[in-house]
Simulated assay, not measured.
Amino acid sequence: MTDNNLDLPFWEGFRVWNFDRRDDGTWISLVPTDTAPMICSGCEQSCSQVHETYWRTIRDMPMLGDSVWLQVNLRRLRCDSCGTRTERVKWLDRHARITQRLAQFVGLWCEKLPVAHVCKLSGLHWETVRKIDRQRLEGKLAELPDAQPIRLVMDEFALFKGHRYATVVLDADTRRVLWVGEGRSREAIRVFFEWLGPARCADIQAVAMDMNTAFDLEVQLHCPNARVVYDLFHVIAKYGREVIDRVRVDEANRLKGDLPMRRVVKRARWLLLRNRSNVPADQQPKLDELLAANEALMTVYIMKASLKELWQAASAWDWRDAWRAWLKMAHDSNIESLQRFAKKLKSYWRGILARVRWPMHTGQLEGINNRIKVMKRMAYGYRDSAFFFLKIKAAYPGNP
């Protein structure tokens, strides 16, 4: 169909010259209107001379379930300042093969849906959608102010199966994800501190983390004024694995002659790892009976509660008294795994004491890590880690 007088507001400066329905969608030919000004795409000044005209095929928003293809007659202008340049079109970016309207539509839905789903909605190729989304994410991050963190939180999350991890760094005050990188070694996280630079590193006062030696050493190397703060949750989780689990297995092996009691001890793992306040009411008698019948399990269970109190000390002096008392009880317990854990914990005392001055934890980042897992499940994983990391940073731009 041909109509030389059809002028629509969708494509400013152009009119419909031809309209055709095909198997692969709707094809619309556009030509410049006689009144449309010719503007240089370089200097954005008005031009009067046309060097040549050419056709470009462009995708636009689907209409009534049909893909829309535009064949646009564009002009290359002779600009006094820029030389030969393509004319500026308000609804089309330079060199673009899709309209700004379609790009905005794709970007909007990429905030809520996986790339594969947006492909079905828009009819665009996966790589095209990902490119649009990447440009949107990079633009969003570029608009953020320069980060000036004072306190940091560092943690890791599983990137792929097979013990492959990534590290996340969070501004503890603004909740902005500053950096995400693959790996958890010193070499992997050193990139963050190099990006932060010596001046901003010197401003860091405290960093919350688990007992990851790589994190600790890099903070000491790059942030001379920072105190490392060890997270209670990770220490208690380590205590559960290395002490409570070990004692439970040892006691189960010792009770080979008492099969009913051995079965109770073997099945009590989650009961022993829980805080007493979180134990269901119907399980409380079972826990009390188990602890009363086994002295070793009673000891390590009580020592776990005492260990948590180190993070509740009101002053450094209170902490020192509680720390010395805990170490002495661990030494006098004659439980090998507990003594071994206490000996290992001695070298981390500064990071535990720092909690008195800096009441920080990695709980903020644990919540973000859970959101990251949801993002991975929604997208059925990401082939491109850098693109995934952009998604994470854009999802947590921080509080104003």
Rank of each mutant, 00 (worst) to 15 (best):
L196F: 04
H95K: 13
F192E: 00
R94F: 14
Q364I: 09
S29A: 15
G240V: 05
S306M: 14
I302M: 14
R200A: 10
P280E: 04
H234S: 08
C43S: 08
A206C: 07
A292V: 11
M378N: 15
A293Q: 14
S347R: 15
A202V: 10
W69I: 09
I368F: 06
E242C: 13
Y380H: 10
L113D: 03
G139N: 09
G162T: 03
G107D: 01
R274L: 10
N5H: 11
F192Q: 02
F388G: 01
S46D: 13
F193Y: 08
Y239T: 01
L152M: 06
M261S: 12
H51P: 02
V169P: 00
L144P: 02
E194H: 10
R136D: 09
A330D: 03
L141C: 06
D288I: 11
D288P: 05
D258M: 10
D24E: 15
G257L: 12
I132P: 00
H125T: 11
P359D: 11
E309Y: 02
D155C: 03
P9H: 08
R151I: 08
Q49I: 11
H361W: 11
E52K: 15
D66Y: 11
A316P: 12
A103Y: 02
N253V: 13
A103G: 12
T362D: 03
T86K: 06
V16L: 05
I368M: 06
D171V: 03
I392Q: 00
R75C: 07
G13I: 05
F105I: 06
V129R: 00
T84F: 10
L137Y: 03
I392N: 00
H51G: 05
D250Q: 15
A342R: 04
I352M: 08
W195V: 09
A188T: 09
I368K: 01
L271A: 07
N212R: 11
D171L: 03
S337P: 09
L178Q: 02
R134F: 05
Y396I: 02
T26G: 05
T174Q: 05
M329Y: 11
T99M: 06
